[in-house]
Design a protein around this nucleic acid. Structure first.
Lengths: 232, 232
DNA sequence: TCTTTGACGACTGTCGACAGTAGGGTGCGG
DNA sequence: CCGCACCCTACTGTCGACAGTCGTCAAAGA
């Protein structure tokens, strides 16, 4: 073995233009540079990214599957997914179900690494909130919740979480952009953490319902400010 | 209004080559003409379908997202997803969770149309089994279970079910091809139907667990015949 | 004035060709 | 005989150009 190992043993994530374009598109949407409802024109975007339309088209298809873009019909234009109260409700109800399943699956496998990951990411979230960094606090909150999904060791579940996470980010980012204040309150995850580390799975389930309900109410007040807040 | 209404009000589903290619690929995989693990070469497939590689590539991406195809890394070949016991377990555990959520959501909305749909599709399933038509019985069983997902009126849930359904079909089709006998037993859904129409949601939940457990055992005996059958 | 029809522009869907990469085989040096 | 560098082929990723479709708008007809 030569000194080659010194420069890293990862397979070197070779990026294709499609991947790069997908990342750039995601970033632009989540940062609000492409507002919800805005049209996405292939030729213009390709020119802006300095690539041809072929890889960009594949990237667009990817975001269509993720739900960040929508297309009414063939030959109809692609637009950034608009914010919608119904979708928001669906996001939180499905997420509550999936996260409960994740806890059930991971419950008996909670080890030192699990507890450490929860603590670390919660610290990172708190730090981001204290720093007033919206973008970082969104990512940190998602990373915190991601701990359980990863601990469940369930590939399909992780994939489902990924599909939800993208859209969730869209709503949170839009919300924070509109209100100009960092995401969750500093103590919003104290109970979550306590029960996640505790002995009572049913208590965790209840905490999840409360947590999701609170999150949904916050998003709904933003997406649908005219109507009274009511559980789905 | 002119006589235009006489020829139909549907938007006329215009198909692109991408959609057609995706359907053809799906059909070939599920029919076993493309066996699990078989390589998928763009140029050869495009020639076989009589189209260029561009729309075929987008169709391949679509099936990659659905899990019917897999790609190890960039520039690595795409192959048909191999059958895997772990994935099978994940399919059934996640499906049990989602279908329980679907019943919870739809429970208070079960109306005459719901009951009729259940009865109709169960009759279709029974007919397919009696006719010894494997392919039809697979589609019929999926359609029967689809009733609840549709009744829940939950777009994201429906999408998640679609993602699971594709892979499930892959496993069932391979199983039936290998054993040469039609799918579920004729009475396998009697309890399912009874509880789905009954008053007790908890009983339905229990029935779901049993139903999924039985289905998983059947698939596992096929995918992983060497090892003793044990719950996940 | 209102409806219909044709042309126009912008865009998406599709194509054939080019560039770059991974894996396998071959020949050389050790 | 074994290890290594090189080449060669098949394939994927990318490109620029062409064809088909949709929305718009102005002109013609009722």
């Amino acid at each position: 073995m030569t000194g080659a190992a010194a420069i890293g043993s990862q397979p070197l994530p070779r990026v294709t233009l499609r991947e790069g374009a997908a990342d750039a598109l995601r970033a632009a949407i989540l940062a609000g540079r492409l507002a919800p409802g805005a049209p996405v024109v292939e030729a213009a975007l390709a020119r802006a990214l300095g690539i041809s339309r072929a890889p960009l088209r594949e990237a667009i298809r990817e975001l269509l599957d993720e739900g960040l873009l929508v297309q009414q019909r063939a030959w109809g234009g692609v637009t950034v997914a608009p914010l919608d109260a119904t979708v928001a409700r669906e996001l939180y109800t499905l997420r509550a179900t999936l996260e409960a399943f994740a806890f059930e699956t991971a419950w008996d496998r909670r080890d030192a690494a699990f507890r450490a990951a929860l603590a670390d990411r919660h610290a990172a979230l708190t730090a981001a909130i204290d720093a007033g960094d919206d973008e970082a606090s969104i990512a940190a909150e998602l990373a915190l919740h991601g701990v359980v999904y990863e601990a469940a060791g369930h590939g399909l579940l992780l994939q489902a979480w990924g599909a939800i996470r993208g859209r969730l980010t869209l709503y949170w980012a839009a919300h924070h952009r509109a209100h100009g204040r960092p995401g969750p309150r500093r103590d919003a995850h104290d109970d979550y953490l306590r029960h996640a580390l505790g002995p009572d799975l049913d208590a965790m389930r209840a905490e999840l319902r409360h947590h999701m309900q609170r999150g949904l109410v916050t998003v709904l007040r933003f997406v649908e400010p005219q109507e009274g807040v009511s559980p789905p």
